[in-house]
Write a protein that binds this DNA or RNA. Structure first.
Lengths: 148, 148
DNA sequence: CACAACTATATTGCGCACAATCTAAATGTG
DNA sequence: CACATTTAGATTGTGCGCAATATAGTTGTG
């Protein structure tokens, strides 16, 4: 066998395992999200808005999703163009933009409900292992995002 | 408490946990990789080349990394511009490009050796949990990449 | 050998990600 | 109240990531 044990081997890198798994899962979402007319980051923004129910500032969405305004501003503009969200000024602080759902944005939730279960069925682990993995990933995100 | 249990909640989505953790770790690599003059995907390509030792075709690198030529071609061009790789034609099949390391590319490995340990020290789990997580992520990548 | 089918890589176009910078609005201090 | 500081978001520039398409080289079949 030629499998090496170098510390730089791809198969030994947790960073690469994360990177590859994340991209693979996002690709799997694509065929489902195409039917909703959403990209994956757009879907995440919609999840955040459905979850919070009240209009959110760009910074609040960024905290929820781990993204900054340079990423979110164009994503939100495209969601606005598709008529799913509105971006109005905060009356009490004109620097802030409040991102709220339109009726069409709220209605889309019913369709989106069916997406996760289709994907979840393909995950190779279930139940306890699934939740343990979620917890570990949460710990990693927190550990590495603490210094931002 | 206001924590909801909707199936669409961000905190219940394994896809989001993966997405967030992966981006957080890539960001953590940035400060280390800046010192090598590499981006994260460029670093992955170098890992693949260091590991294989023989020049690789674009498609072979793509299989190793889970990326296609649309992504790899410009990455490889930039690595060539920095003098780390060469891209020559395969004499026996002029359609193929063989990507090989330059002396500078080989030399960079010594510096890169020190990167993973600095990052690994920050992972909130070690030993057994670490390896179990690696295995689970590998299973996910395989399960979702099988249909490409 | 002609030529259709196939294969490897490159190109194009769009949409993120993110650092650095900019603008405007709010806040603190004397 | 003047004015420096801070804060929220937008803008700019670079580099992925990927689908769709294009191009050139190779192989199979008659």
């Amino acid at each position: 066998m030629t499998a090496s044990t170098s510390p730089l081997d791809l198969d030994n890198q947790l960073c690469f395992a994360l990177y590859r798994a994340s991209h693979a899962v996002v690709r799997a979402y694509k065929s489902e999200l195409d039917q909703l007319g959403l990209t994956y980051p757009q879907y995440l923004v919609m999840l955040a808005l459905w979850q919070e129910s009240k209009p959110q500032g760009v910074g609040q969405l960024g905290d929820l999703l781990g993204l900054d305004s340079g990423t979110l501003t164009p994503v939100l503009r495209r969601l606005e163009q598709r008529g799913l969200v509105v971006r109005r000024r905060d009356e009490h602080d004109e620097r802030r933009r409040l991102i709220g759902l339109t009726d069409a944005g709220r209605d889309l939730r019913a369709l989106a409900e069916k997406v996760p279960e289709k994907i979840a069925a393909r995950f190779p682990m279930q139940g306890k292992d699934y939740h343990q993995l979620m917890a570990q990933l949460g710990d990693i995100a927190q550990a590495f995002d603490s210094d931002r």
